[in-house]
């Protein structure tokens, strides 16, 4: 069994992604009034932009949140 934590993490992600697709129903465009609501957008809010910057600088973990992923030292 592979003990590499990076491969385990990737493998688990792929499995969860595939499983999540099995429970979906087809939603027609005219049925998407809730899905298309501004609050339902699948990304961080514009107003979270600078909050994401300070997470990047004040914490070690970064990425996969739609925020800044590089550039700038954040060393202060």
């Amino acid at each position: 069994m592979n003990k590499n934590p990076f491969l385990k993490t990737l493998g688990l992600t792929v499995c969860i992604s595939l499983l999540s697709l099995t429970g979906c129903t087809t939603v027609k465009e005219y049925q998407k009034s809730r899905i298309n609501d501004a609050e339902m957008e699948l990304s961080a809010r514009k107003s979270e932009k600078f909050e994401q910057n300070f997470y990047l600088y004040r914490e070690g973990a970064a990425g996969a949140n739609g925020g800044k992923s590089g550039g700038g030292c954040g060393c202060n």
Binding site: L10, S20, Q31, I35, L42, A64, S69, G71
Partner: peptide
């Protein structure tokens, strides 16, 4: 100091009220 990153995302509408997004972003 150089940084390289790759992001792969999958978004899915589950039903009329729910949707999700998976993201993997190795760097």
């Amino acid at each position: 100091r150089n940084s390289y990153n790759l992001s792969v995302s999958l978004s899915q509408v589950i039903n009329k009220r729910m949707q999700l997004l998976f993201t993997v972003e190795p760097s």
